[in-house]
Protein backbone atom coordinates (compact mmCIF):
# COMPACT_ATOMS: atom_id res chain seq x y z
CA UNK A 1 0.00 0.00 0.00
CA UNK A 2 1.34 3.38 -0.87
CA UNK A 3 0.21 6.53 0.80
CA UNK A 4 -0.55 9.43 -1.47
CA UNK A 5 2.35 11.90 -1.46
CA UNK A 6 -0.02 14.66 -0.47
CA UNK A 7 -0.88 12.84 2.77
CA UNK A 8 2.75 12.11 3.61
CA UNK A 9 3.37 15.80 3.04
CA UNK A 10 0.61 16.76 5.46
CA UNK A 11 1.89 14.31 8.06
CA UNK A 12 5.50 15.46 7.60
CA UNK A 13 4.60 19.12 7.97
CA UNK A 14 2.55 18.33 11.04
CA UNK A 15 5.41 16.43 12.69
CA UNK A 16 7.97 19.10 11.76
CA UNK A 17 5.75 21.86 13.15
CA UNK A 18 5.21 19.89 16.33
CA UNK A 19 8.93 19.29 16.86
CA UNK A 20 9.83 22.90 16.10
CA UNK A 21 7.20 24.23 18.47
CA UNK A 22 8.44 21.79 21.12
CA UNK A 23 12.02 23.01 20.65
CA UNK A 24 11.08 26.66 20.87
CA UNK A 25 8.82 25.96 23.85
CA UNK A 26 11.66 24.27 25.75
CA UNK A 27 14.05 27.12 25.07
CA UNK A 28 11.49 29.75 26.03
CA UNK A 29 10.58 27.75 29.14
CA UNK A 30 14.19 27.85 30.38
CA UNK A 31 14.35 31.62 30.16
CA UNK A 32 10.89 32.18 31.64
CA UNK A 33 11.51 29.69 34.46
CA UNK A 34 14.80 31.26 35.55
CA UNK A 35 13.48 34.80 35.26
CA UNK A 36 10.26 33.90 37.07
CA UNK A 37 12.17 32.42 40.00
CA UNK A 38 15.08 34.85 40.03
CA UNK A 39 13.92 38.32 39.03
CA UNK A 40 11.85 38.98 42.20
CA UNK A 41 15.01 38.69 44.32
CA UNK A 42 17.15 41.05 42.29
CA UNK A 43 17.54 44.41 43.92
CA UNK A 44 20.12 47.13 44.28
CA UNK A 45 21.26 45.51 47.52
CA UNK A 46 21.56 42.09 45.92
CA UNK A 47 23.82 43.46 43.19
CA UNK A 48 25.98 45.75 45.28
CA UNK A 49 26.22 44.21 48.73
CA UNK A 50 28.79 41.76 50.04
CA UNK A 51 27.74 38.14 50.28
CA UNK A 52 27.23 36.83 53.78
CA UNK A 53 27.30 33.33 55.21
CA UNK A 54 28.90 31.76 52.07
CA UNK A 55 26.30 33.39 49.82
CA UNK A 56 23.30 32.22 51.83
CA UNK A 57 22.31 35.84 52.25
CA UNK A 58 23.64 39.21 51.19
CA UNK A 59 24.59 40.20 47.66
CA UNK A 60 26.91 39.21 44.89
CA UNK A 61 29.11 42.26 44.48
CA UNK A 62 32.55 40.55 44.51
CA UNK A 63 31.38 38.00 41.94
CA UNK A 64 30.10 40.86 39.79
CA UNK A 65 33.59 42.38 39.92
CA UNK A 66 35.09 38.99 39.05
CA UNK A 67 32.73 38.60 36.11
CA UNK A 68 33.79 41.99 34.73
CA UNK A 69 37.51 41.78 35.43
CA UNK A 70 38.32 38.27 34.21
CA UNK A 71 36.88 38.63 30.68
CA UNK A 72 38.24 42.19 30.51
CA UNK A 73 41.86 41.10 31.04
CA UNK A 74 41.36 38.15 28.73
CA UNK A 75 40.09 40.46 25.98
CA UNK A 76 42.94 42.93 26.46
CA UNK A 77 45.44 40.14 25.82
CA UNK A 78 43.53 38.09 23.24
CA UNK A 79 42.47 40.96 20.96
CA UNK A 80 45.95 41.98 19.72
CA UNK A 81 46.90 38.33 19.25
CA UNK A 82 43.69 37.42 17.45
CA UNK A 83 43.48 40.50 15.24
CA UNK A 84 47.21 40.24 14.52
CA UNK A 85 46.76 36.66 13.40
CA UNK A 86 43.79 37.61 11.24
CA UNK A 87 45.72 40.47 9.61
CA UNK A 88 48.63 38.17 8.92
CA UNK A 89 46.39 35.48 7.43
CA UNK A 90 44.47 37.85 5.18
CA UNK A 91 46.89 40.63 4.24
CA UNK A 92 50.43 39.39 4.55
CA UNK A 93 50.39 35.93 3.08
CA UNK A 94 48.77 33.62 0.59
CA UNK A 95 47.27 30.24 1.32
CA UNK A 96 50.21 27.98 2.04
CA UNK A 97 51.41 25.41 4.51
CA UNK A 98 51.85 27.95 7.32
CA UNK A 99 48.36 29.44 7.01
CA UNK A 100 46.95 25.93 6.95
CA UNK A 101 48.80 25.10 10.16
CA UNK A 102 47.58 28.32 11.78
CA UNK A 103 43.96 27.65 10.78
CA UNK A 104 44.25 24.06 11.93
CA UNK A 105 45.53 25.30 15.30
CA UNK A 106 42.68 27.76 15.68
CA UNK A 107 40.05 25.21 14.66
CA UNK A 108 41.38 22.60 17.07
CA UNK A 109 41.59 25.14 19.87
CA UNK A 110 37.95 26.05 19.22
CA UNK A 111 36.87 22.45 19.72
CA UNK A 112 38.68 21.77 22.99
CA UNK A 113 36.26 21.41 25.91
CA UNK A 114 36.51 23.91 28.72
CA UNK A 115 37.48 21.33 31.34
CA UNK A 116 40.68 20.68 29.35
CA UNK A 117 41.43 24.40 29.40
CA UNK A 118 40.84 24.23 33.14
CA UNK A 119 43.27 21.34 33.57
CA UNK A 120 45.86 23.04 31.42
CA UNK A 121 45.47 26.41 33.15
CA UNK A 122 45.84 24.69 36.50
CA UNK A 123 49.01 22.81 35.63
CA UNK A 124 50.59 25.61 33.54
CA UNK A 125 49.62 28.95 35.08
CA UNK A 126 48.64 27.96 38.61
CA UNK A 127 51.32 25.35 39.29
CA UNK A 128 54.23 25.59 36.82
CA UNK A 129 54.32 29.38 36.57
CA UNK A 130 53.41 29.70 40.26
CA UNK A 131 50.66 32.25 39.74
CA UNK A 132 48.35 30.41 42.14
CA UNK A 133 44.58 30.63 41.91
CA UNK A 134 44.35 34.18 40.73
CA UNK A 135 42.76 36.66 38.38
CA UNK A 136 45.95 36.41 36.32
CA UNK A 137 45.75 32.60 35.85
CA UNK A 138 42.03 32.77 35.14
CA UNK A 139 42.31 35.51 32.50
CA UNK A 140 45.26 33.87 30.76
CA UNK A 141 43.35 30.58 30.57
CA UNK A 142 40.37 32.43 29.09
CA UNK A 143 42.70 33.95 26.47
CA UNK A 144 43.42 30.44 25.18
CA UNK A 145 39.72 29.73 25.07
CA UNK A 146 38.50 32.84 23.23
CA UNK A 147 41.39 33.33 20.80
CA UNK A 148 39.88 31.12 18.02
CA UNK A 149 36.61 33.12 18.06
CA UNK A 150 38.48 36.42 17.76
CA UNK A 151 40.70 35.12 14.96
CA UNK A 152 37.75 33.73 13.00
CA UNK A 153 35.47 36.78 13.30
CA UNK A 154 38.30 39.26 12.64
CA UNK A 155 39.33 37.30 9.57
CA UNK A 156 35.79 37.39 8.20
CA UNK A 157 35.54 41.10 8.97
CA UNK A 158 38.83 41.90 7.27
CA UNK A 159 37.95 39.80 4.23
CA UNK A 160 34.69 41.73 3.92
CA UNK A 161 36.55 45.02 3.38
CA UNK A 162 36.32 45.60 -0.41
CA UNK A 163 39.58 45.16 -2.25
CA UNK A 164 39.14 48.52 -3.99
CA UNK A 165 39.73 50.28 -0.63
CA UNK A 166 43.20 48.76 -0.47
CA UNK A 167 43.93 49.59 -4.11
CA UNK A 168 43.08 53.25 -3.57
CA UNK A 169 45.30 53.34 -0.50
CA UNK A 170 48.21 51.73 -2.37
CA UNK A 171 47.77 54.10 -5.30
CA UNK A 172 48.17 57.00 -2.87
CA UNK A 173 51.59 55.62 -2.03
CA UNK A 174 50.67 54.06 1.32
CA UNK A 175 52.67 51.08 2.51
CA UNK A 176 50.96 47.79 3.34
CA UNK A 177 51.17 48.52 7.07
CA UNK A 178 49.69 52.01 6.61
CA UNK A 179 46.91 50.51 4.53
CA UNK A 180 46.16 47.88 7.15
CA UNK A 181 46.20 50.38 9.98
CA UNK A 182 44.35 53.28 8.41
CA UNK A 183 42.07 51.63 5.86
CA UNK A 184 41.47 47.95 6.50
CA UNK A 185 41.20 47.82 10.29
CA UNK A 186 38.90 50.84 10.72
CA UNK A 187 36.53 49.38 8.14
CA UNK A 188 36.63 45.94 9.72
CA UNK A 189 36.17 47.32 13.23
CA UNK A 190 32.47 46.51 13.75
CA UNK A 191 33.10 42.89 12.75
CA UNK A 192 36.08 42.66 15.07
CA UNK A 193 34.11 44.15 17.95
CA UNK A 194 31.36 41.60 17.33
CA UNK A 195 33.89 38.82 17.82
CA UNK A 196 35.08 40.47 21.02
CA UNK A 197 31.52 40.73 22.34
CA UNK A 198 30.84 37.07 21.57
CA UNK A 199 34.03 36.14 23.42
CA UNK A 200 32.99 38.20 26.44
CA UNK A 201 29.66 36.38 26.43
CA UNK A 202 31.40 33.04 26.39
CA UNK A 203 33.85 34.01 29.15
CA UNK A 204 31.05 35.21 31.41
CA UNK A 205 29.23 31.91 31.14
CA UNK A 206 32.36 29.80 31.60
CA UNK A 207 32.66 27.76 34.77
CA UNK A 208 34.89 24.70 34.37
CA UNK A 209 37.93 26.57 33.07
CA UNK A 210 37.59 29.37 35.61
CA UNK A 211 36.98 27.45 38.81
CA UNK A 212 40.33 25.60 38.53
CA UNK A 213 42.37 28.65 37.61
CA UNK A 214 40.84 31.69 39.30
CA UNK A 215 39.65 29.78 42.33
CA UNK A 216 36.46 30.63 44.16
CA UNK A 217 37.32 33.13 46.87
CA UNK A 218 34.41 35.33 47.86
CA UNK A 219 36.60 38.14 49.19
CA UNK A 220 37.21 41.33 47.25
CA UNK A 221 40.51 40.97 45.35
CA UNK A 222 43.28 43.48 46.02
CA UNK A 223 45.61 42.60 43.16
CA UNK A 224 45.60 40.49 40.02
CA UNK A 225 47.29 37.74 41.97
CA UNK A 226 44.29 37.32 44.26
CA UNK A 227 41.75 34.60 43.78
CA UNK A 228 38.27 35.62 42.66
CA UNK A 229 34.87 34.04 42.07
CA UNK A 230 32.81 34.83 38.97
CA UNK A 231 29.03 34.81 38.83
CA UNK A 232 28.92 31.47 36.99
CA UNK A 233 31.18 29.84 39.57
CA UNK A 234 29.16 31.44 42.39
CA UNK A 235 25.94 30.14 40.85
CA UNK A 236 27.43 26.68 40.43
CA UNK A 237 28.55 26.53 44.05
CA UNK A 238 25.23 27.87 45.37
CA UNK A 239 23.25 25.40 43.28
CA UNK A 240 25.43 22.33 43.65
CA UNK A 241 26.03 22.59 47.35
CA UNK A 242 22.42 23.55 47.95
CA UNK A 243 23.49 26.70 49.80
CA UNK A 244 20.60 28.87 48.70
CA UNK A 245 18.21 28.18 45.83
CA UNK A 246 16.78 31.67 46.11
CA UNK A 247 20.14 33.34 45.59
CA UNK A 248 21.05 30.76 42.95
CA UNK A 249 18.01 31.67 40.85
CA UNK A 250 18.66 35.37 41.29
CA UNK A 251 22.33 34.96 40.28
CA UNK A 252 21.29 32.87 37.26
CA UNK A 253 18.88 35.60 36.21
CA UNK A 254 21.58 38.29 36.44
CA UNK A 255 23.96 36.00 34.53
CA UNK A 256 21.48 35.33 31.72
CA UNK A 257 20.50 38.99 31.47
CA UNK A 258 24.15 40.07 31.11
CA UNK A 259 24.83 37.44 28.46
CA UNK A 260 21.65 38.21 26.52
CA UNK A 261 22.47 41.92 26.52
CA UNK A 262 26.01 41.27 25.29
CA UNK A 263 24.86 38.84 22.60
CA UNK A 264 22.10 41.20 21.50
CA UNK A 265 24.60 44.04 21.12
CA UNK A 266 26.87 41.82 19.04
CA UNK A 267 23.98 40.73 16.80
CA UNK A 268 22.90 44.29 16.34
CA UNK A 269 26.45 45.30 15.44
CA UNK A 270 26.87 42.39 13.07
CA UNK A 271 23.65 43.34 11.25
CA UNK A 272 24.71 46.98 11.04
CA UNK A 273 28.02 45.79 9.63
CA UNK A 274 26.41 43.51 7.05
CA UNK A 275 23.89 46.19 6.09
CA UNK A 276 26.70 48.70 5.54
CA UNK A 277 28.73 46.26 3.45
CA UNK A 278 25.89 45.24 1.17
CA UNK A 279 24.76 48.79 0.49
Amino acid sequence: MTVHPRYTQTIAIFVLTLLTVLTLAVLVFIIVFVFGKGLPYISYDFLFAKPEDMGRSGGIFPTLIGTVILPLFAIIIATPLGVGTAVYLTEYTRENRITRIIRFGADCLAGIPSIIFGLFGFIFFVTTLRMGWSIMSGSLTLVFMILPTIIRTSEEAIKAVPYSYREVSFSLGATLWQTVRKVVLPNALPGIVTGIMLSIGRSIGETAAVIFTAGSSLRMPHSIFDSIRTMSVHFYILAREGISNKNAYATAAVLIISILIINLISYWMMNMFIAKKTK
Binding site: L27, I30, I31, V34, G201, R202, I204, G205, E206, T207, S232, F235, Y236, A239, A252, L255, I256, I259, L260, I262, N263, L264, Y267
Partner: peptide
Protein backbone atom coordinates in the same frame (compact mmCIF):
# COMPACT_ATOMS: atom_id res chain seq x y z
CA UNK B 1 21.58 31.34 18.66
CA UNK B 2 21.16 33.70 21.60
CA UNK B 3 20.03 30.71 23.61
CA UNK B 4 23.30 29.00 22.78
CA UNK B 5 24.81 31.65 25.06
CA UNK B 6 23.00 30.47 28.19
CA UNK B 7 25.74 29.13 30.48
CA UNK B 8 25.88 25.37 30.90
CA UNK B 9 25.51 25.66 34.68
CA UNK B 10 22.06 27.15 34.18
Amino acid sequence: ELLAGIPSVV
